[in-house]
Each structure stands twice: as structure tokens, then as C-alpha cells.
Computed example of a mutant assay.
Amino acid sequence: MGKVLVLNASYEPLNITSWRRAVVLLLKGKAEQVEHNGKYLYAEFPLPTVIRLRYYVRVPYKEIPLTRRNILHRDSHSCQYCGYTGDDLTLDHVIPRSRGGGDSWENIVTACVRCNVRKGNRTPKEANMILDYPPRQPYSSLYFEVSKYLKTGLHDEWQKYVIGSS
């Protein structure tokens, strides 16, 4: 049956939950249905894909961990120098560690083996290589998570609530 996007009262993405939990929130009157995909739980009860809470919930900022998987996701599993999207991807430090570059969202990008070797122990400018996008830390952990679901194509109705994310 799938996952359901939970929106705050302000229509900001808040959480991803199971369809069962979403139905409970609807039945208790704590949420309202915003989108459904045409499937029905009962004859007159469409299965929700997006719900909105009737009250505003304050959400504390949550740091996104700097992991290989998250960097690959941020960079759309493609080389940031040539656009290659195969299996042979590595992580490249824009400013090499040996030259003072650290491990941070702003200094690590996805690169294919060929581009990583070509760049070597130089900066992209010194190697005459241009980054497709300057690396940055994703804005919100929830937008980051939701965008992973959007890339599968199974939750297209979520798109309008997550525009401009990650």
C-alpha cells in the first residue's frame, strides 16, 4: 500500500509514515487528506498519499550525517566533473586533504575513478576541471529523505510539496 507524506499545518513536509498511521490520524480528526492515488481502503475512503496535520508542529533542526551514501544521493549518483553515472564512483575532496581540505559537505563531491585520478592532488581550477554544481550541505533532513522517495517515481504526488529541496 505504501508510504504517506505528512505535511505540517503550514503545508511543509514533516514526516513520512505508513498508510496505517495516516489512516489513524485521519479517523481521529488530527489530519486531513490532501492527496490520494485512486486506491480505496473502503468504498468511500480513498487511501491517502499526502495528509496535512490540523495543528502546527514545531520541528527542531536535524543535522544530516556526512556519509558516502548521503553524498552520492546529494550528487544524484553522478560524477560532478563529467556527469558519468555508472558503478565506479568515488568521493573526491575538492581541496585535497594533504593541502588542508577537510571532510565536509562543502569539500567532498562524487567523482568517477577517471576524473578523480586526473584531478589528483590538485584543486579543480589547477586541474582545469569544472564542477557541475558547487558542493553544499543539504538544507533539511526531511527534504533530503523525501527526495529519495521521489527519485523512485512511486510518489509523484509528493513533488509539489518538496519543490526546491535537497
Rank of each mutant, 00 (worst) to 15 (best):
R136H: 11
C112P: 08
Y56D: 10
S18D: 12
L26M: 08
Y42W: 13
P138I: 15
A127E: 03
L25Y: 05
L89F: 15
R69H: 13
T17V: 14
K30H: 05
G101Q: 07
G100N: 11
V34Q: 07
T123C: 12
L53D: 07
W19G: 08
G29E: 00
N70C: 11
H93Q: 14
K30N: 04
P46V: 15
E12F: 11
L27T: 10
V109L: 04
L27D: 09
T67A: 03
V113G: 12
T110D: 09
D88C: 10
E35P: 02
S76M: 08
I16P: 01
W19H: 03
P134L: 12
S104Y: 06
V113E: 15
L72Y: 12
V23T: 14
E126F: 01
Y81K: 02
R52I: 11
G100F: 09
R58Q: 14
K30L: 12
D103Y: 03
R58G: 09
G120E: 10
I130R: 07
D88I: 08
C115F: 05
N70E: 14
R136V: 03
I16K: 05
D88M: 15
H77G: 13
N37M: 08
W19I: 15
L53F: 11
A127L: 02
G120H: 11
Y81P: 00
P96Q: 04
Q80M: 14
R68D: 09
T67M: 00
T110W: 07
L14V: 07
R74L: 15
E106P: 09
Y84R: 04
A43Q: 04
